[in-house]
Every structure is written in C-alpha cells, then in structure tokens.
C-alpha cells in the first residue's frame, strides 16, 4: 500500500465505530473463540500424538491417514455437523448452544485438532529414537521418556499449535453457520469474528473497512506467531 492511499483510508478508519467498541469486541470474540478452541485442541492433540508416537499396533498407519485426512475437512461441512449437533433436534440440543460462542469453539476445535495432532505426531516421530532409549536406559519411566520426547519436539509442536490457530482464526464457513455473525443492539459483537465481519463488510461494499479488519487479523496472527516463536526460543538454553 502506498503512502498516498493513507488519506483515502482515513475516512474508513473514522467510520469504524471504535467508540462503541465494535472492532475491539470483534477482536475479543475472535481471540476468545480461537484461543479457547486451540487450547482445548492442544490438550487433546499433543497427548494423542505422543501416545501414537510411542505405540506400535496394527493399523497405526491407517490412524495416521485418518488424522492427515482430517486436515482437509471442509469448514462448512464441519459447521453443518456442529449445527446439527447443537440444534434442537441434535444430541446437544438441550444445552442451547446454537448461535453461541461455545458452538463456535466446538467447530473450531474440530477444525484445529487434525492439524495440531498430525504436525505434533510428525514432530514426535522425528525425535531420535536414541534419545527415547537413553531416557529409559537411565532409569526413566515411560512418562519420563515421553516428557523428554515432548521437550525435544517442542518446536514442531509449537508449529502445530500455530498451524491450528491459523486454521481456526482465519476460518469463515463454520463459525458463520454455527455462530450466526451476530451483534447486539449496541453494535457490540456477540458471535461476530474478524473473518465473518470482513465477509459482511465486503458484501456490503465497505471495502476499506474490510481491508482494515483484514489488516487487524493479519497483525493478530503475526503477533501470536511472534509470541509462540519467542516462547520456543526461550527453551533453547533451559
């Protein structure tokens, strides 16, 4: 973007209802939904990846293939399945989750889990078997050996979490279906995320607003990347 374009974008910036907290509420909802979904997914995916990395059983290759296939799940299909699950006729209908952030977290959890598991598993598989053998030979239990492998694989696992976060925060289809892209009467987001807001603004011809929201989204992803990478670097000399 050239400097000359900045004055043209200024009115768009002014048009954004900052005072009503519109943008901040969208950023908050995006972060709340995606961070929660990725955190829960990480708690599930990493132990599963370590267990799979340590276990030898018939059909292990098939299980890996299923996980890898999950990385390509179309988000709108995931959204439809979660919508069915939380709808009145669905198995979770009594929880009244439809068009709530919790339903959005569920759909993003389904989307983020396969990439986090698959990339973590690749990282665990990539750890030298000798390290694992050494941990056991030095008197470590299976849990001790798993902790050593986790530490050795931490950069790959950080990458997995980033990939999962990237998939979750940049996804439109499923959160639109299960969240409904709703704001309250005061204009504050209830289930509107940065991606669904961008989609809405662009459809209404508010391209400048959509661009600015897009820039906010990119800045958000870059910031989370930087924090995770920095966190990973901190472990080098531990």
């Amino acid at each position: 973007m050239s400097l000359a374009a900045i004055p043209q974008l200024a009115p768009a910036l002014l048009d954004l209802p900052f005072r009503e907290g519109y943008v901040w509420s969208i950023v908050y909802v995006s972060l709340y939904v995606s961070v929660t979904a990725v955190a829960v997914s990480t708690l599930v995916s990493v132990p599963v990846a370590v267990a799979l990395g340590f276990a030898e059983f018939p059909g292990k290759g098939f299980v890996k293939s299923v996980i890898n296939t999950g990385m390509g799940f179309p988000s709108v299909v995931v959204g439809l399945v979660v919508l069915f699950a939380v709808s009145n006729q669905g198995p979770l209908g009594s929880l009244e989750l439809i068009f709530t952030r919790e339903a959005m977290i569920m759909s993003q959890f389904v989307l983020a889990t396969p990439p986090i598991t698959a990339i973590s598993l690749a990282a665990v598989d990539g750890v030298d078997d000798g390290v694992r053998d050494a941990a056991r030979a030095l008197g470590g239990t299976r849990i001790d050996a798993a902790l050593v492998v986790l530490k050795e694989a931490r950069y790959g696992i950080a990458t997995a979490v980033l990939a999962g976060f990237g998939r979750a925060v940049s996804e439109v289809g499923s959160v639109l279906i299960v969240g409904g892209n709703i704001t309250g009467p005061d204009g504050v987001s209830k289930t509107r995320t940065l991606t669904t807001a961008i989609q809405l603004e662009a459809r209404q011809g508010q391209y400048e607003t959509a661009m600015i929201l897009g820039a906010v989204l990119v800045a958000l992803v870059l910031t989370v990347n930087a924090v995770v990478v920095r966190f990973g670097d901190g472990g080098v000399n531990a």
């Binding site: 030298d128 390290v131 030095l138 470590g140 001790d144 530490k151």
Partner: peptide, 28 residues
C-alpha cells in the same frame, strides 16, 4: 533396571546443558 546403566554407541544427549544431561538419571 535403575541399578543398571547403559551407554550407547551414539551419545544421544538431550537438548540441554551438560549438567542437566548428567543429572537426568538422578532426577528421574
């Protein structure tokens, strides 16, 4: 098993300092 030590052909040290590596057997 903890009364027996083993050294492999490959050193296979952990991604840590020398002291933390040598302390591992004591730590576990």
């Amino acid at each position: 098993r903890r009364r027996v030590g083993m050294v492999f052909q490959e050193a296979s040290l952990f991604d840590a300092s020398v002291a933390r590596n040598v302390e591992y057997g004591l730590r576990v």
